[in-house]
Design a protein around this nucleic acid. Sequence first.
DNA 1: ATAAAATATTAGGTTTGCCTAATAAATATA
DNA 2: TATATTTATTAGGCAAACCTAATATTTTAT
Lengths: 221, 221
Amino acid sequence: MIMFTTSEENYLKAIYNLQQEEDSGVSTSSLAEILNTKAASVTEMVKKLADKKLVHYKKYYGAELTNTGMKQALTVVRKHRLWETFLVQHLGFQWDEVHEVAEQLEHIKSEQLIEAIDKLLGYPTQDPHGDPIPDKNGNLKHKNQQLLSDMEIGSTGIIVGVKDSSPTFLQYLDKEKITLGTAYKLYSKEEFDHALELEINGKPLRVSHKIASNLFVEEKS
Amino acid sequence: MIMFTTSEENYLKAIYNLQQEEDSGVSTSSLAEILNTKAASVTEMVKKLADKKLVHYKKYYGAELTNTGMKQALTVVRKHRLWETFLVQHLGFQWDEVHEVAEQLEHIKSEQLIEAIDKLLGYPTQDPHGDPIPDKNGNLKHKNQQLLSDMEIGSTGIIVGVKDSSPTFLQYLDKEKITLGTAYKLYSKEEFDHALELEINGKPLRVSHKIASNLFVEEKS
DNA sequence: ATAAAATATTAGGTTTGCCTAATAAATATA
DNA sequence: TATATTTATTAGGCAAACCTAATATTTTAT
Ligand SMILES: [Mn+2]
Ligand SMILES: [Mn+2]
Ligand SMILES: [Mn+2]
Ligand SMILES: [Mn+2]
């Protein structure tokens, strides 16, 4: 059982997250931005991960997780999301307060610990932000989600996740009383700025395109 | 609010623990042994801690915590012991399984987290090994404990703590069904090897001096 | 009081993960 | 297609925590 450094784990998770969005190789600069580091440092680490067969790397064309890299990334993601869920459900944290702490807790090395947390939580399949939690074997429960900004006029359904889980965005949602499970109805879209007219919690609400493009919804059949 | 590295925190805690036993300066070699490192590394770090005014250090005469060093050490000790308690009480860990994980968890930086754990546990004053848990302000509840090996013939009371909390010792205690709170009666001591004849759980038990000198007891008044 | 033994410090390296500045390659633009 | 711009890599350093080997100091034993 090979072990990874905190830094390696952070890189693997970041590559995983970026890989979910675009399906080309993950760029050096995008990693540098997410990891709050410089491009030169990223190149160096990506080469190290490639040596360890955790990523495929071709100079100038970015990195992609190998099968083993993916497996490892998923265990870090699993730990991150289980800890977030624990913090909210058992320690009274708000959904905008969990990320930074989970960022540390995800690196604790103890299989017994994470299995016990998982059991305590009742083997949850999603975290406080609606993101799927991989099970012990790395399997994810696929959700049928779409971006609110991509929905057609007249669409109704419920909010099931957030794409951006930064405190500022989450606090905006709190202010507007938008939680996971909240029902929406899309009335209209503004030509000019792509703002959306919605009904949320029985009241009309106008949201910018930026906001709608960070909310995942599941449409009512 | 100055922050410390994991390594600095481990050193502060180790100095604290050793300082409890002997009251002269904590020696370089004792720290090296406890921290699984080499004397040269200890000297280096102790000098760094001295620069940061966390320890008093005089070359060749060991280190002692300053007031700020003590305060910091106590917050690490507090976190370590709260996590151990949490692992046992909420996650089903045995008392011999918690140390290694707590060694990692004690370094998580989040006041909100540790206060929430403290609250969840009901503000405990001792950990699974009977060691006192400092409160938020660093205050310890003093216990009236003595070593079993120091008790007089005929003494009775209860086991209240372990001095050595290594898995091997704890597993020995499990095997003999000795837990914190178990009553003892001291029948006799062997001249030759200082072994003790006890009554434990209503049954006679012979224990070596080494074992008795790692058990804290509180005598029945 | 001296010599031997035990402890501690210093000197000189190594590894990991960062950084800035210089260079190279890929992509966009004219 | 040639040039400019953007993106990525390499070169050369730095700080934190380790290490081994050489040296210094203290402690113990003669
Ligand atoms: Mn992290
Ligand atoms: Mn999350
Ligand atoms: Mn530790
Ligand atoms: Mn303990």
